[in-house]
């Protein structure tokens, strides 16, 4: 255990407490507001009710938006998982000119502001593709999401590959296994958890994304975050947003639980 003065330890503990309050108080207020009877959120809450939960339960647009979000995030996750893993293997196994550039290229889509990425894609779709008679529609949104999700899978898989014993693959090849067989039986099991964790992150990133989505969603299609944003224009049911937000928070426990299990498995 680290030798630190009592004062230093106390200081650190206070910082931890501040961080936790700062992170959780807003979410807590929001969750409480989903039970606010009023149309308009506020504090302190004057009267509690479950009417917005009942309203949300059967509200069709929420379901449609949720379905879109799941479809887009799944599509983006699959594409990003394949591409991210390929890059990770390339950067792990080879020293080559331009290696750092490839690394930079993978990071770029997440590092550049979402509004730039969104505007760039929508510019390509509407000023170049659609005049050429090619209407990309729904798939354009998945393409944009997949692009900035690649880095999530890449990071996780690459970090794991670096710690892997390369001799295992050589041994496998020596024993006569082909590349695919080696990959399937030797390599993949070793980075499987990192792969799943990366894919999960990619899914979450896409599921939550709003800025790129604003610019790339085809007319009439809402993802869940987009629906929440548009709801800000509908004052007569503003509180229903709190219900959806609470559900999103609760749903987020699932991937956190899974990735926690994965890390424990690793250790």
């Amino acid at each position: 255990m680290l030798r630190l003065s009592r004062a230093t330890k106390a200081f650190l503990l206070v910082v931890v407490a501040i961080v936790l309050v700062f992170m959780y108080a807003p979410l807590f207020i929001l969750i409480l507001n989903s039970f606010n009877e009023s149309q308009i959120s506020g504090w302190p809450i004057e009267s509690f009710s479950t009417k917005w939960w009942i309203f949300a339960k059967d509200y069709q647009p929420i379901r449609a938006a949720l379905l879109n979000s799941v479809l887009v995030a799944t599509g983006a996750m699959i594409i990003a998982s394949i591409l991210g893993t390929l890059v990770a293997f390339a950067l792990k196994g080879f020293e080559f000119f331009g290696r750092a550039t490839v690394n930079l290229l993978v990071v770029l889509p997440i590092a550049l502001p979402g509004v730039v990425t969104g505007v760039a894609f929508s510019n390509t779709y509407s000023n170049f593709l659609s005049p050429a008679g090619f209407n990309i529609g729904y798939f354009g949104m998945i393409v944009a999401h997949a692009t900035f999700c690649i880095v999530m899978v890449f990071n996780n898989v690459f970090a794991r590959l670096k710690r892997m014993n390369p001799h295992l693959q050589e041994a496998s090849a020596d024993l006569g296994a082909g590349l695919w067989q080696t990959f399937r039986l030797v390599t993949f099991p070793q980075f499987r958890t990192a792969f799943v964790a990366g894919a999960l992150l990619a899914f979450a990133l896409s599921f939550d994304e709003v800025v790129v989505t604003i610019f790339t969603a085809p007319p009439g299609v809402d993802t869940l975050p987009l629906w929440i944003l548009k709801e800000m224009a509908r004052p007569n049911q503003a509180s229903v947003v709190n219900v959806v937000a609470t559900v999103v928070i609760l749903l987020s426990l699932i991937p956190v639980y899974i990735s926690q299990r994965l890390t424990q498995e690793r250790q």
Binding site: I40, S41, G42, E231, M232, A233, R234, P235, A238
Partner: peptide
Amino acid sequence: SDPVAQIT
């Protein structure tokens, strides 16, 4: 620009 924001 968002009515809900104005009301709140």
